[in-house]
Design a protein around this nucleic acid. Structure first.
Lengths: 219, 219
DNA sequence: CCGTCGTTATATCGATCCGATATGACGATT
DNA sequence: AATCGTCATATCGGATCGATATAACGACGG
């Protein structure tokens, strides 16, 4: 599941593990942060599979030229200040404060990312959130298909609760309140999704031929 | 995390694994179902810890009396029908269609359940949903504390997104939409929680001063 | 009467993910 | 100069998931 998140972020810019983790935490829908116990093994796995590769383990961005001439001490201090500033402020491409492992995505990694974005067998919430986060990598039709599959899934869940499977009669107040909250959350999600679909259709008027399933008619 | 769910359900009635799984799936907030690969190891773990014990591995509920007299065949058929009906409809206490492992909770298990209900260090969403589902096992003051701790947590998350950590300026439309949905979901959750708190305060007017965790709850 | 299918039921395997923890370099503060 | 906070990588054990194996039983059609 993390593979998609990692590949998606590395497709934007090369990163090392520590920074990757922070950005993962900023992604909505993911739990607030990802533990290193998941991240580093995942990176190792992806590297072994050839989907990402270590770009460098030396500083990359802070201009490596200008090999300190003249006053050695002064130049060294300036060089260090430059390093520090690059680390704290810019946060740009592949560098970790000093020679850490910086990863980049490969072509195979991009193909894999596309697979993960469209795989219809995975339907859990977090994966969907990740897919939306990176869906600019999809074509308009694929994007629409993603949204509509999600819509089907949400409706399935809603109707699952509709008929009282069991525990029908006397459930306590708290449980009932929980169920109501759950139902409301699904309804809100569905409304949000419908607005997404409407927007998407506006940019892609003729997405496929016999596309029905218009978002709007929920009884 | 499942420990709480299992103990909570077994506190209501004895159950065997298969039925337990179905009820787990009906609990709101849990993903739609729990895999057996989680459930059976969890049951074994709980049993080894003495929190749960195998009550019986023979049918328990379907009235063992009335030992088929008269026409043997007819009586046998009736008995079987009775068994089947008990299985499909009533779903009462410990029986698995024929002599399966039926678990019950122990006193140690109930103490452990209470611990899991009030532990302030665990703050994830699923655990909170489970706690609400079983919070009738708490005193009014404990319940209120649970709700208010959750409230603090939700506000923390909301304010975390308030200031644009990074990714400030140009994020794509889909990402922005995701963030908005996320914010709205937290707000809705917060509103629901507040209504829960109001209701709870109505039943416990003086939850501020001295030791007042009276389980009797008189006017 | 018999094969086959669906349901009930328990169990295990490998892969993945999390939380805690260890390690160490560096800058800033005191 | 000692200490603290941040940056950075890594590993360990335990929890969970998804797939799979096994088997008893009822129902259903041929």
């Amino acid at each position: 599941m993390f593979d998609l998140a990692i590949l998606g972020l590395l497709d934007e810019t090369d990163l090392h593990g520590y920074e990757l983790r922070k950005r993962l935490g900023d992604l909505p829908g993911m739990g607030l942060a990802v533990s290193f116990g998941s991240l580093y093994p995942a990176l190792a796995r992806l590297e072994k599979a050839g989907l990402v590769k270590a770009v460098t383990n030396r500083p990359a961005s802070p201009a490596p030229a200008a090999p300190m001439s003249g006053s050695l001490v002064g130049e060294l201090a300036a060089f260090r200040a430059q390093l520090r500033q690059a680390g704290n402020a810019v946060r740009e491409a592949g560098r970790g404060s000093r020679g850490k492992k910086v990863y980049g995505i490969t072509d195979a990694g991009r193909r894999r990312m596309h697979e993960l974005l469209v795989d219809p067998d995975v339907t859990d919430d977090r994966t969907f959130a990740l897919r939306v986060a990176f869906c600019r990598n999809l074509g308009p039709a694929e994007r629409l298909e993603l949204f509509e599959r999600r819509r089907t899934e949400l409706i399935r869940r809603r109707d699952l609760r509709r008929n009282p499977t069991r525990a029908d009669g006397r459930v306590n107040t708290y449980l009932r309140s929980l169920v109501e909250r759950d139902t409301a959350a699904i309804a809100a999600d569905l409304a949000w999704l419908d607005s997404l679909i409407v927007e998407e259709r506006a940019t892609v008027p003729a997405a496929g031929s016999g596309a029905d399933t218009q978002p709007g008619g929920n009884p």
